[in-house]
Amino acid sequence: MNPIPYWLRGVVSLLAAGHLGAVAVMTLAAPSGPWAVAQGADWATPPQLAQFGAEKVGPYLDSLKMTHNYHFAENFISSQPDGGPDARFRAKLLDADGKTIDELTFPDPKAWGTVRHRQRLLARALAEDELVVPTEGEMVPAANQRVERVLIWQMGEGQRGAVKAVPRHLVPRDRPTLGPSRSSMILASSYARHLLRHHDAAAVEISRTSRPSIPPDVLFLDGVPQEAAFDDSTVTFGETHAHDGTDAR
C-alpha cells in the first residue's frame, strides 16, 4: 500500500488547521459577563479581532451546526448568574365560559426523564426576564403614531402578577421593573397553541412560578433570614384563545 502523498497530507493539514482555527475563533468571540452596570447587568462585547474572525467563519460553522462558543448556559447553574431562581410552569385549560377544565404542571413528575428535562428547559426559557428601563421624561409620539409600549410584570398581592403593556415612560421609576423577554412571550403563546390543538379547550392560560435559590450565606448569618425572601413568585403570560393563533384549530 502506498503511503499518502505529501500533497494530500498538505491539503488535509490545511483543512484540519482551518477548521479547528475557526472553532477556536468562535470561542474567543464570546461576550463576557454579565457584569454589573448602572441599569442592572449587561454583557461586554467580545474582542474586536475575534468578532471580525467569527463573522468570517460564521457561515461555514453554521452550515456544520458548530457555532457554539462553549460558554454553556448550564455553567450558570440555574440559568442565572448567582444560582438564581428555578422555574416551573402551569397551563390552565379553560372552556368558553372561562371555567377551568384542567390544569397541567410542567415539568411533569410522571413524564420520562428525557422529556421532563426538556420541559425544564422550556420552563427556564419562560423565566428569562428582562429589566425594563423607563425613559427619562415624557415621550411624545410622532403624528399618527402610538407611544412605544413595553411589557412588564405588574405584580400584585402575594408575589402574584401578570403581564401588562404600558407606555415606556410610565414604567415605574422607584424600583427595578422586570418584564418577560420577547422570546419567552413567543414560546408561551406557542406552547398554549400546542395545548389548544390537542385538548378540547377554548383558551389556555400559561403561568410561571419561580423560586429563588437559598444562598450558602444563610449558614453564616447571625440571625435567621425572612422566609418571605424565598417565597414563590407567580406570573401569568395571559390567555391564548383558540381563535387567536393562526395555527390553532
Binding site: N75, I77, S78, D86, R211
Partner: peptide, 19 residues
C-alpha cells in the same frame, strides 16, 4: 467568569435546588 464558580460555591446550588 461566574461568581459562584470563582468562590467555589457552584455545587451548593444543585445540591440544594430551590424547589
Amino acid at each position: 467568569q461566574i461568581s459562584v464558580w470563582w468562590a467555589g460555591l457552584a455545587l451548593w446550588f444543585p445540591l440544594f435546588p430551590p424547589f
